[in-house]
Simulated assay, not measured.
Amino acid sequence: MRHALNLAGRVLIALLFLGGAVQKLADPAPVAAMVRSVGLPGASVPWIAGFDLLAAMALVIGPGVTVWALVMAAYCIGTSWFHWQLRADPWQVTIVVKNWAIAGGLLVLAAQGPGRWALRTRRRQSAAR
């Protein structure tokens, strides 16, 4: 059962990044504005969306789930900075807390590994058995 729960958790977390990729591609203007507000080029939005999409796929199918979980935990903590708008929009602070919670789940995933239901290299498959 724990392998099924691990896969279900990976899929649910991946859906968040998949949805983020779709949202960034469908309506890039708000994200471009946020990115520009910190001095980065607004034209980087498609690359950011591609990164989200790649991460979503990697979290679900592997290999490298542990590494991707660590990278995406750092990504969630880092991107929460964009939402720290306590005076301008207090509801954005909820997004900060959610990003931290997602990072926490990703850290647990990194610690536990992908379970049995993830693609691995042949060498790792024999070591995991």
Results as ranks from 00 to 15, higher is better:
residue 35 V to H: 03
residue 101 A to W: 01
residue 10 R to P: 00
residue 40 L to Q: 10
residue 67 V to N: 03
residue 47 W to M: 13
residue 19 G to R: 02
residue 14 A to F: 14
residue 70 L to Q: 08
residue 4 A to H: 06
residue 96 V to E: 03
residue 23 Q to V: 13
residue 97 V to T: 14
residue 5 L to W: 07
residue 88 A to D: 09
residue 26 A to I: 00
residue 92 Q to L: 08
residue 62 G to N: 08
residue 6 N to K: 11
residue 64 G to V: 04
residue 35 V to N: 03
residue 66 T to N: 03
residue 80 S to C: 15
residue 98 K to V: 11
residue 78 G to Y: 02
residue 98 K to L: 11
residue 19 G to V: 04
residue 84 W to C: 11
residue 48 I to A: 02
residue 82 F to G: 09
residue 92 Q to W: 06
residue 94 T to I: 09
residue 96 V to N: 05
residue 52 D to S: 06
residue 18 L to N: 09
residue 44 S to F: 08
residue 53 L to I: 15
residue 88 A to V: 07
residue 22 V to P: 00
residue 47 W to L: 14
residue 86 L to Y: 15
residue 69 A to W: 00
residue 92 Q to K: 10
residue 80 S to I: 13
residue 51 F to R: 09
residue 66 T to W: 04
residue 63 P to D: 12
residue 7 L to T: 10
residue 16 L to H: 06
residue 44 S to T: 14
residue 67 V to D: 02
residue 83 H to L: 05
residue 86 L to D: 15
residue 57 M to Q: 06
residue 28 P to S: 11
residue 8 A to H: 03
residue 96 V to S: 08
residue 74 A to Q: 04
residue 80 S to F: 12
residue 42 G to D: 11
residue 56 A to S: 04
residue 93 V to I: 13
residue 24 K to A: 08
residue 8 A to M: 10
residue 71 V to H: 01
residue 11 V to R: 13
residue 17 F to V: 10
residue 16 L to A: 12
residue 57 M to L: 14
residue 60 V to F: 11
residue 71 V to Q: 01
residue 36 R to W: 07
residue 47 W to A: 14
residue 29 A to D: 04
residue 95 I to R: 02
residue 34 M to S: 13
residue 53 L to A: 15
residue 79 T to I: 14
residue 19 G to H: 01
residue 66 T to R: 10
residue 70 L to K: 12
residue 10 R to D: 11
residue 29 A to T: 04
residue 79 T to K: 01
residue 68 W to G: 00
residue 32 A to Y: 04
residue 38 V to A: 03
residue 38 V to F: 05
residue 97 V to G: 14
residue 16 L to Y: 05
residue 53 L to M: 15
residue 82 F to T: 12
residue 48 I to Q: 01
residue 97 V to R: 15
residue 51 F to E: 07
residue 53 L to V: 15
residue 27 D to W: 00
residue 19 G to L: 03
residue 9 G to L: 12
residue 98 K to D: 00
residue 35 V to Y: 01
residue 71 V to F: 01
residue 102 I to F: 00
residue 62 G to K: 12
residue 13 I to G: 04
residue 34 M to V: 11
residue 21 A to T: 10
residue 39 G to R: 07
residue 49 A to F: 05
residue 75 Y to V: 12
residue 49 A to I: 13
residue 40 L to R: 05
residue 13 I to H: 01
residue 59 L to W: 09
residue 57 M to C: 10
residue 85 Q to R: 15
residue 44 S to E: 08
residue 68 W to Y: 04
residue 76 C to I: 11
residue 18 L to P: 02
residue 82 F to V: 14
residue 25 L to F: 04
residue 9 G to V: 10
residue 20 G to S: 07
residue 101 A to V: 14
residue 11 V to T: 09
residue 69 A to T: 08
residue 36 R to Q: 13
